[in-house]
Design a protein around this nucleic acid. Structure first.
Lengths: 148, 148
DNA sequence: CTAGATGCAAACAGTTTGCGTCACT
DNA sequence: AGTGACGCAAACTGTTTGCATCTAG
């Protein structure tokens, strides 16, 4: 549980208004186990603020993700994407524009599970995503901060 | 490019009818560069079969993915999922039911980029997904094959 | 006081489904 | 001939947006 003052400070750091909704959404997210969806978060937040709107939950989750106050489990690319590269490879993914570039497997250290995964889980393959900001997006970012 | 006979055989192996649409969709996918979406595939397939329906493209891509004839870039969980575990960790993901379990980072060999990623790409973090079939889904699978 | 946040409803994108017709085996 | 595939339109899910109202700073 986060003290009210802590949350206010966190918002201040990110230049966000410290609203009641915002705080409850944030605290609810970090209180939930696992990997909750916006719907799940909404259901729980509603118990504290029955009048809250699902759109507000969505808007704030987006805001938190953008500011890096929260992280999403794996990036959506807006639609299903099919792999056409048959060779073993991993992905270089831009968290800003979501572009995907293949990375030859030999560019990464060999990767092995050092311990057992939960018994009963049959491992098929290991996918590695190198996440970051691509050149085009860094350039955009630099331009933006120069302006302001 | 795949010979017609090869595709027929491939379909036969997977107990699928070798229809013209099926073949054109499959060949189009493997001919496209990068990580095409169903829309992109549809646009290109349409040049060869103008009367084809988007639903057919979706149905067949699903079929191919299920049979393992194609692979998707990264799994959708149906909705956005927020990370609540603050400790560094990776994910154990069931490709069947899409359940996600956290895996402590120390269960994996330390992972480093052994060579440079394309210059200009600023790496933020590396996400590792261990993909496979969870215990519950293997059980279901076993039951299914016993029945038939 | 004013920029930004909320709540609502409507719009939207991506995907799936139901069903009548058609084609592969 | 019969099972499964196709094409169409309608349904559905998850998410975003426009706008009027409200609130934090």
């Amino acid at each position: 549980m986060l003290h009210k003052s802590n949350f206010r400070e966190l918002c201040h750091q990110h230049q966000l208004a410290a609203t009641h909704q915002r705080q409850v959404i944030y605290e609810t997210v970090i209180s939930l186990p696992g990997h909750p969806s916006p719907e799940t978060i909404y259901e729980k937040v509603r118990r504290q603020i029955p009048s809250i709107s699902l759109a507000t939950v969505y808007k704030n989750i987006r805001t938190f993700l953008h500011r890096g106050m929260l992280r999403e489990v794996s990036l959506h690319h807006g639609s299903l994407r099919v792999e056409t590269n048959q060779k073993p490879h991993h992905h270089l993914v831009c968290v800003e524009c979501k572009s995907i570039v293949d990375l030859d497997e030999n560019r990464l250290e060999p990767l092995r599970l050092s311990q057992k995964v939960p018994r009963g889980f049959e491992v098929k393959r290991i996918a590695v995503d190198v996440l970051g900001i691509c050149e085009a997006c860094s350039a955009k970012r630099a331009r933006r901060s120069k302006k302001s």
